[in-house]
Design a protein around this nucleic acid. Structure first.
Lengths: 240, 240
DNA sequence: GCCCTCTCTTGTAGATCTGACAAGAATGAT
DNA sequence: ATCATTCTTGTCAGATCTACAAGAGAGGGC
């Protein structure tokens, strides 16, 4: 279109992936951050990620590889979905870099995530990132914001909340997921009823589990459905 | 990480943008397609799009440029948002191409979109694309599917539906947007009441408009709010 | 003019859902 | 045994949704 001749070749750009790994630890919503070891911004907290290994590596494959290399998490059993591409010029001082962000949901505390190859990895409360108490490299705070908003939204109409839980879970655990991600508190009794009234969301697993004190909770497993109808509606978003 | 020396340089990849332009024409949900003039897949229908002009062009800027070049649409007044990145190897026979897809919402029939520079452009019913009646180049059908799903979902909780309408509109027009995008029919009387009960969604514009026959409809304009609460819930998604 | 048709708008009644809370059930701690 | 704790079941008033009746305002045919 620009009148250049047949010889024109499209520009080529460095492509990276970044991963927002979300989980629930002790009923608090956490994101995994690593401390950058290299310039630029060495020492700052950042999302795990990196450049494609070679010109033919798939971006989804690259995300899974970084998940393993930097967070020592196995992709199987994790929910991984693409978020968006962040590629405005100027976002990376090294040059023109287009980064494809992924969101991964991990079930509760499988490992402390340190002591492995990913020694600089740490779970940080999402709230600390959103509020700016912890500052992140590049535009990673915006990426986390987008991931959190995506998760909040998908909790309403899909069974994404189950990805935060293990194979079996109690409804109280599930409630803590909703409360942690949405940043609100819900009535346990109404939550109990509502969740069980959504066909295909959860089904009883027969057993019970003791948590701390009190009556043991029944265990549930995923009901197989992925879309929730009726949806779980979160309480009024921004109060006047 | 891979043990290669300091000399390692990340691979570089061609980056393109593709745009899913959605609109409502005669109460039918349409997407803009162009006929490819060049190989590969010359003659096939495809989404408007193309490579970045140069290494420093922003991807959002590139999307707006393609919108102008290929669809002759001005970005001002259009809702444009990023969808996702499509970059698995093998999606383009020319080589490794990563394409960032955008979704644009255009208000009703501003022009027939032909007779301009974008002479090969045509509005095609979304249903024909989703059903496979019209086949698209590359993975563009998947991109359209994702765009439609995004639009369907955002209609519930955001005022995105207004982007399909002009500055003023009747509630029946708005209803046709919901019906067309969701692919269902709604009760006009309940729709009327529900829309007006959502604070900040629409506000009366004072005037009235004759459509064809029957009582003239009151005109409304956007109410300024972007998030709908309570949400517009679409009827049962997949019937059993 | 007068009726008819068409579409927009308001109203109403029953079913359903929500939100707040009481109270019973099952365990561990004292 | 009693208490504290947590899970689970009920209840009930108010809000919301759905389906439908009916009125309001315009044009067209006779």
């Amino acid at each position: 279109m620009s009148g250049t001749s047949d010889l024109w070749e499209p520009p080529e750009i460095q492509v990276a992936v970044d991963i927002v790994i979300l989980t629930m630890r002790a009923s608090v919503f956490h994101v995994l951050l690593i401390e950058r070891g290299e310039e630029p911004q060495a020492g700052t907290q950042a999302l795990p990620g990196g450049f494609l290994n070679n010109k033919w590596e798939g971006i989804y494959d690259a995300a899974l590889r970084e998940l393993k290399e930097e967070a020592d998490l196995d992709a199987s059993g994790l929910h991984v979905e693409q978020l968006a591409a962040y590629g405005e010029p100027g976002r990376d001082p090294r040059g023109r870099v287009l980064s494809v962000a992924y969101m991964a949901i991990a079930p509760g505390l499988p490992e402390p995530s340190a002591g492995t190859d990913a020694s600089d990895a740490a779970w940080v409360p999402v709230e600390d990132v959103l509020s700016g108490k912890v500052s992140l490299a590049f535009d990673h705070r915006q990426i986390v914001r987008d991931a959190v908003e995506r998760a909040r939204s998908k909790l309403e109409r899909t069974s994404l909340a189950l990805a935060f839980c293990g194979r079996t879970f109690t409804l109280t655990e599930l409630q803590h997921v909703y409360e942690g991600v949405w940043g609100c508190s819900l009535d346990p009794r109404n939550f109990y009823r509502k969740v069980q009234n959504i066909p295909g969301f959860v089904e009883p697993a027969g057993s019970v589990r003791r948590m701390a004190a009190g009556r043991p909770a029944r265990l549930f497993r995923a009901g197989g459905g992925t879309v929730l109808y009726p949806p779980m509606v979160r309480p009024v978003p921004t109060e006047s």
